[in-house]
Design a protein around this nucleic acid. Structure first.
Lengths: 352, 352
DNA sequence: GCATCCCTTCAAAGCGCTTTGGATAAAGCA
DNA sequence: TGCTTTATCCAAAGCGCTTTGAAGGGATGC
């Protein structure tokens, strides 16, 4: 707790007061001129702006924060245990956030918290007034973070949705529709034993994708076989292992739906290992988040996919949070982006 | 520029003044008690701490910042163009930073800036008093960020070093030594045509690694062939492509030194494609940053490596910056971590 | 000509904390 | 006992901005 006293900052910069004195104007006028308020004569404003530029004057952030109550920063928390940062989906999403917040000159602060401290951290950051809002990523179908934040009455925006009937700003893609259509495509091509390699079960996007998958099957009177559905982290390794397992079954699936290109990449490796021709012996289709280092279209054969850039998602969600902070009503800040389905040669008709 | 007036924050929280009044004490005493200063009677402190806990009092961050001059936040800038966040080396490093700064309750703020704005952003954040310090990553051998920051007189800590003879706090690993020893090992095993798959040329760590490589060769009277040295981003794809190129040369190298497990992973794929037995027909050794999803020891065959966790590096560098901010002299904040060399079966003796 | 308005500008009051420079009372010392 | 220390606590002065409430002066309206 003990803190060093008397730790004044670097060299002294020019202050508003100094600038005002130099210009023979009041601080009020200078402040207003610089912040774009209308009650300043245009000529005066010019003078002020010019002088500020010349002296390199910059308003002190802490003082401004205290006076306005706005912090100019938002936070995103993530579990320190799960190595989320290393998940390229998350990183790419972060990149989108950082880009937009950078443009808006807002600080995006990253917080690793242990699971046990997470809710308390939201509470603490809020009541200390350390942030203007939060980005929440990877919501679970039932997620206590959301009700907490709603209760704290602090702006937040969610990457995805939840199932607990709360109302909040979010950006999501049409996961259910995407997977329904992808499944439909496979069904149209005559596939009936279709496997699903999905994300971690609790996460809402995985639930939605499974729902889309199931409902497409159900419409044709097919019920999903539990053994053909896998839930887990979306990494190459698991795509490989699960696909091996599936291929080695007595009645192997003829098609495979993967929740990430990473999983599909593993599936490709497994198929090759087992000597199966992708697009012929086994069809593979995946959701493509647009990860820059693993492009669906450059795989061999090119991978059919439902596509939606997760990085753009981050960018858009940042905009949503900014608008929320600016006071726009929640009802106007709920966005569901459609997902394209791109047909490529990794899928073909079922060989009976 | 125009900003909404009158945007007061969420519900009102208890303030220091309220707490002091309730306790019938002065703000001074309450503040001191809570911040661990000695001039408060222990009994009084107990009362204060208890009351604070009970009312859920939290000091307002902006007010504290203004009063102390400390912001409680540090920033790391990265180029928006290069998709650095998606580089797993960077992400893992970030994870280490986030962990330590989280423990210290410091905000770590991520800033994507365009190359052209980068220096100006450092300047702006500093003079506005928005940060207590900076983390600088991936220094180039000659890096203008370092001289700028030194001139701004703001604390910063560098992940790596540079060649321009500046003095600053840093954490680095012994890149040169690591690669010298790895090269020595290969030479001891009889290899003479050794290739180097390295990182981007401008980056200082790549320079150091090449230096280590060259000096080991030079000691045995061998001079490095330029065609056997590759510089570029450390991704699987390039490891694959470059290794293919090397193998297809008339006199192919018998050993390969890679600056990342990702590059080595690509090299493995290339060797397999070309029907070469790793550890026999071609020896491969890499630097292992400890990326959690790609473990050198689980590759087939296990990959020999110089190892040093980049995540721990991030953690340690965060400590260094914190100590710098707390006033510790630069000379005590320069750390070069040794690198272990782990022998595994991906290297074997040269077949003549 | 006088009252009314608008356009500019200003002085001063916060924002909620930390910290300086005492003041008071109790304790130590001679 | 009288005086210096020491241990506690306090009032008030910032920190550097934004914003409220007012005022001065020229233009307008009748």
């Amino acid at each position: 707790m003990l803190q060093a006293r008397n730790s004044k900052r670097f060299e002294e910069n020019m202050k508003l007061k100094d600038l005002a004195e130099h210009l023979q104007l009041s601080q009020t006028t200078v402040s207003r001129a610089l912040n774009g308020y209308p009650e300043v004569a245009e000529e005066t404003r010019q003078r002020i702006v010019e002088a500020a530029r010349q002296f390199g004057y910059r308003p002190n952030a802490a003082a401004r924060r205290l006076a306005t109550g706005r912090t100019g920063s938002v936070a995103i928390l993530f579990p320190a245990e799960r190595n989320l940062l290393v998940d390229p989906h998350f990183s790419d999403f972060l990149a989108g956030l950082a880009e937009k917040f950078g443009e808006a000159d807002m600080d995006l602060s990253l917080k690793a918290t242990r699971k046990a401290d997470e809710l308390e951290t939201y509470r603490r950051l809020t009541t200390m007034g350390r942030v203007d809002g939060f980005i929440v990523s990877s919501p679970r179908s039932h997620d206590e973070r959301l009700s907490l934040l709603a209760g704290l009455n602090v702006p937040f925006a969610v990457h995805g949705r939840s199932q607990d009937g709360l109302t909040f700003p979010f950006f999501d893609i049409d996961n259910e529709g995407a997977f329904r259509r992808a499944t439909d495509l496979l069904l149209d091509l005559g596939h009936e034993r279709i496997a699903l390699l999905n994300g971690i079960r609790d996460l809402n996007f995985a639930r939605a994708r499974e729902e889309g998958f199931r409902s497409a099957l159900a419409e044709r009177g097919i019920s999903a076989e539990p053994e053909l559905i896998f839930n887990g982290p979306m990494v190459e390794e698991l795509g490989y292992r699960q696909t091996c397992r599936l291929i080695d079954r007595p009645s192997r699936p003829t098609a495979l739906l993967a929740a990430s290109v990473l999983l599909a990449f593993g599936a490709y490796r497994a198929a090759r290992d087992r000597g199966l021709a992708i697009g012929k012996d086994i069809s593979i289709i995946a959701h493509d988040d647009g990860l820059p280092f693993l492009k669906a279209e450059t795989l061999e054969p090119p991978l059919a996919a439902t596509v939606s850039s997760i990085r753009n998602g981050g960018y858009r969600l940042a905009e949503i949070l900014l608008e929320r902070i600016a006071g726009k009503p929640v009802s106007e800040l709920q966005e569901i982006a459609p997902v394209d389905l791109v047909f490529r040669s990794s899928v073909g008709s079922a060989r009976k």
